[in-house]
Write a protein that binds this DNA or RNA. Sequence first.
DNA 1: ATCACGATATGATAATTATCATGACATGAC
DNA 2: GTCATGTCATGATAATTATCATATCGTGAT
Lengths: 228, 228
Amino acid sequence: MDPGCTCELCELKELFFLNLNAENANLICSGKIEKTFSQGEVILKEGTMIQEFTYLKSGLVKLFRRDPSGREQIITIARPMDYVSLLSVFSGKLYNYSVSALEDSVTCNLKMEDIRTLANSNGKLAFNLLQKMSAIADTIILESLEIRKKNLKGRVAYLLIYFSRTIFFSEEFDLPLSRKEMADYVGMTTENVIRTLSEFRKDGILKIYGKTIQIANMDMLQSISDFG
Amino acid sequence: MDPGCTCELCELKELFFLNLNAENANLICSGKIEKTFSQGEVILKEGTMIQEFTYLKSGLVKLFRRDPSGREQIITIARPMDYVSLLSVFSGKLYNYSVSALEDSVTCNLKMEDIRTLANSNGKLAFNLLQKMSAIADTIILESLEIRKKNLKGRVAYLLIYFSRTIFFSEEFDLPLSRKEMADYVGMTTENVIRTLSEFRKDGILKIYGKTIQIANMDMLQSISDFG
DNA sequence: ATCACGATATGATAATTATCATGACATGAC
DNA sequence: GTCATGTCATGATAATTATCATATCGTGAT
C-alpha cells in the first residue's frame, strides 16, 4: 500500500494520507523520485521550468536569486518539514529563484502534474496545501520585513537568533552560511558582517570559533535584534 | 440566481462561478456584505480575529504593520482585483497586519467559514485560490527583496515606477501616499524621501506639483531604479 | 479672518554603512 | 611540500543615510 513512501516524519506524506484514499496515495508515492545533493550543489535553478514538486527530506538549503550584476540575494533558508517548492510553484511556469544545498541534502520529488490533478479533484488536499503555502509565505514576508527595518547590528543579531531558535534549536551551532552568504541574506557587505560579529565577540555576546558560534548572552543579543 | 453578486468585474465572483454550481454560488453571494470606508479609515486591524474573507471592490488600500516603537511599516498597496485578505487568512487565526483605505474604498466581505467549507469540498475552487495566493505572495516577496537591495534613490525610483505602471497606468498621477508613508514603505526617513524627490525634480526626472507627480524622464528613472 | 497643526522642504551635522586596501589563515590543486 | 584561491579579519577613508533644527506651505477648526 505504501511502496514508495517509506520515509518517517514526512509531513507531506501525512498530508496526502489524511486526504487521499489508498489508491491515490499510492499513485503519488510510486511516482516519487528521491535525489541526493552534496553541499554546494544546485537543486533548482532560477528560470527553469517547474515540473516537479520538491520536498526537502533531509539537509538544509538556501533559496536565493541573482540580480543582473551577479550578486546573490538569499530569500530564506529551509530545513526538512518546510516545503522547498513554494514561491511560484502554483502560480508560475518558471522558478523565479534558485535553491542550493547548504548541507548534504535529499529531496523527494513528485510530479507537479499529479499534485495538480489530485488537488483539483480533492478539496481537502488543496485546502491543506493552501494553508501550508499561506503559512510559509507569511513567514517569509514577515522575516523580510523584519530584516528590512533593522540596522546592521540588529540584522546580524536577528540572523543569529534565527539560526539558534529556528534552525538548530541550540545556543551553540555551526554557521551554515559563510560571512559572505550572511551578508547576502541580510543585505549588507561581507566586511560589515565580520566586523559586527567581531564586535559581538568583544562585547562578550558571542564566542566564535571559526564557523562555530556560541551565544553567550542571549538577552543582550535579543535586545540588539529588537532594538536595531 | 445571483441576488447578491451583481458587481461587474469581480474576479472573485468569476472564480466562484467557474467552480461552483448555482446553488453554492448563491450561498456565497447571498451571504456577502459590502462595507464602505472613507479615506484613512481602518479596514482590518492587526491582532484581531480573522472571520471574513475581504475582497477589495473599489478604491485603494495599504497593508501595514506597526512595530513596538509605533512606527508603521507598509507591506504593500492593493487595488481592486487583488485580494486584501491574503497573508495569514488561511494559515492563522489572527491578522498579523492592518489594512486602511488610501482612497474611499468598498470591500466585499464573505464569511470565512463559507469559503473554508466550499474549498474543502471543491478541489478546483481551492486550487484556484491556491494559485491566486501563491501569485500574490510571490509578488510581495519579490517586491520586498527588490526594495531591500536598493539604495535610497533606487527605492524612491522603484516606488514611483510601481505607482506609474502597476497602480495608475500613467506617467502622471497623484501620489496616494504622503512622503512619510512613502518612507514607511521603503524603509527610509521622511526627510530623505523629500530630498530624493527634490533631487529628481532638479535633475529634470520629475515634475512635482504637491501630490501630483509627472515622470518627465522615465528612462532615467528606470535606470536609477535598476542600478540603485 | 486667525490660529494650530501636520505635511513639505532644506540645511548642518552626526551616525551608519560601503568601499578600498592589506594581511593572516585555511584549504584544495598540483 | 608550494602555489593559488577564497574566506576571515581589521583599518582607513569615502559615501550614504539618519538626526536635529528650522522654515514654509496648506488645510481644517474656530
